[in-house]
Deep mutational scan, measured.
Amino acid sequence: GGHPVTTQMVETVQNLAPNLHPEQIRYSLENTGSVEETVERYLRGDEFSFPP
């Protein structure tokens, strides 16, 4: 991942996926670069990993 992630982006995802840890959200956003894509992954039931 190398996309810039803002606190705003993390908070937006958190509102839609409250049971995800912020670190999981941030890591996913760094890989996708997209709030929409991260939320899609969540709704699909994809696994969210923590940063290594």
Rank of each mutant, 00 (worst) to 15 (best):
P52I: 09
E11M: 13
T38Y: 01
R26D: 04
E23T: 10
S49Q: 14
S28I: 05
Q8P: 05
E11Y: 07
P18N: 05
T12A: 15
F48S: 02
E40Y: 12
V13I: 08
P51Q: 04
E47M: 10
G1L: 12
A17H: 03
M9F: 01
L20F: 02
R44A: 11
V35I: 13
R26A: 07
G1E: 11
L20C: 05
Q8I: 13
V35R: 00
P18A: 07
T6S: 10
R41T: 04
E36P: 06
E23N: 09
L20H: 00
G2F: 14
N15W: 12
V13M: 04
E36S: 11
T38E: 01
F48K: 01
P51N: 04
N15P: 06
P22F: 09
N19D: 14
G33E: 04
T7M: 14
E40L: 15
R26L: 08
I25G: 00
P52G: 08
G1Q: 14
P22V: 14
H3I: 11
T12W: 15
P51I: 04
E36N: 09
G1H: 13
E23Q: 11
N19T: 13
G33V: 03
G2H: 14
E23S: 13
A17T: 08
Q14R: 13
V39C: 07
L43G: 04
P22S: 09
Y42V: 05
P4D: 12
L43M: 12
F50T: 03
T6C: 08
N31K: 13
Q8W: 11
Q14A: 12
M9N: 04
H3A: 09
E47D: 13
P22L: 09
E40S: 12
Y42P: 01
V10K: 02
N31D: 13
M9Q: 08
V10W: 05
T38M: 03
G1A: 13
D46I: 08
L43Y: 10
P4G: 11
P51V: 04
D46R: 02
E47T: 11
Q24C: 08
Q8L: 13
P4N: 12
H21I: 03
N15G: 13
G33K: 06
N15H: 14
I25S: 00
T38A: 02
Y27W: 14
T7V: 13
N15D: 09
H21N: 08
V5I: 12
N19G: 14
F48G: 01
P22Y: 11
T7H: 14
H3L: 10
P52M: 08
E23C: 15
P51A: 06
M9Y: 02
N15Y: 11
R41M: 10
G1M: 13
I25C: 05
H3D: 09
A17K: 00
R41E: 03
V13Y: 00
L43W: 09
P22I: 13
P18F: 05
V5F: 09
L29V: 03
V5W: 09
V10I: 15
I25V: 06
N31G: 10
Q8C: 13
L16K: 08
L16T: 07
F50N: 03
E36V: 11
P52W: 06
L29S: 02
P52A: 09
E23H: 09
Q14S: 10
Q14T: 07
L16F: 12
E30D: 05
E23R: 08
R26K: 11
T12G: 06
L43N: 09
V39I: 15
S34R: 03
A17C: 15
G2A: 14
F48A: 02
S34D: 07
Q24S: 02
L16R: 11
D46V: 08
S28V: 04
P51S: 05
P52S: 09
T12I: 14
Q14F: 07
T12D: 12
P18K: 09
A17Y: 09
T6F: 07
F50G: 02
N19I: 07
Q14P: 01
T6Q: 04
G2T: 14
G33R: 07
T32G: 07
F50R: 02
G33M: 07
S28G: 02
E47H: 13
T38C: 04
Q14D: 00
E40A: 14
S49A: 15
F50P: 03
E23M: 13
Y42I: 06
S49L: 15
S34C: 06
R44Q: 09
S28W: 08
P52Y: 07
S49K: 13
T38R: 00
N15L: 15
G45A: 03
N19R: 11
F50Q: 03
G2N: 13
G2V: 14
T12P: 01
G2S: 12
V13D: 00
E23K: 08
S49V: 15
N31A: 14
V5L: 06
P51D: 05
S34K: 03
P22C: 10
G33Y: 06
T12S: 11
E23D: 15
V5E: 03
T38W: 02
E30Q: 13
P52L: 09
V5K: 03
H3P: 09
E36A: 13
V13S: 00
L16N: 06
T7A: 15
F48I: 05
L20R: 00
E47N: 11
L43P: 02
F48H: 02
E30C: 10
I25D: 02
E30F: 08
V39S: 05
P22N: 05
G1W: 12
N19L: 13
E37R: 09
T7N: 13
V5T: 06
V39A: 05
T6V: 05
N31P: 00
R26H: 07
T32F: 05
G45T: 00
R41Q: 10
L16V: 12
R26Q: 08
N15A: 15
V39K: 04
H21F: 07
G45Y: 00
Y27V: 11
A17E: 01
N19H: 12
A17G: 02
D46F: 10
Y42L: 06
G1T: 12
Y42T: 01
S34F: 01
E37K: 12
Y27F: 12
N15Q: 15
P52R: 06
R26T: 06
T32D: 03
Y42M: 04
P18H: 07
T12E: 14
T38H: 00
N15M: 15
I25K: 02
E37H: 08
E11V: 11
E11W: 08
L29A: 01
E30T: 08
G1Y: 12
I25R: 00
M9R: 01
G45F: 02
Q8S: 13
G1I: 12
E47F: 13
L43F: 11
L20M: 05
P22H: 09
V10Y: 05
V5M: 03
G1N: 12
H21M: 08
V5D: 02
I25W: 00
F48Q: 01
I25N: 02
R41D: 04
P22A: 09
Y42C: 03
H3G: 10
G1C: 14
L43H: 08
N31R: 11
V39E: 03
G33T: 03
E23W: 09
V39W: 09
N15S: 14
T12K: 13
L20S: 00
V35M: 07
R44I: 05
L20N: 00
V10S: 02
T6G: 03
E23G: 07
N31V: 14
L43A: 07
Q14K: 13
S28T: 03
N19W: 08
P18D: 04
S34A: 04
R26E: 06
P18W: 05
L29K: 01
Q24G: 01
I25H: 01
H3Y: 15
L20Y: 02
V5H: 03
V5C: 05
G33H: 08
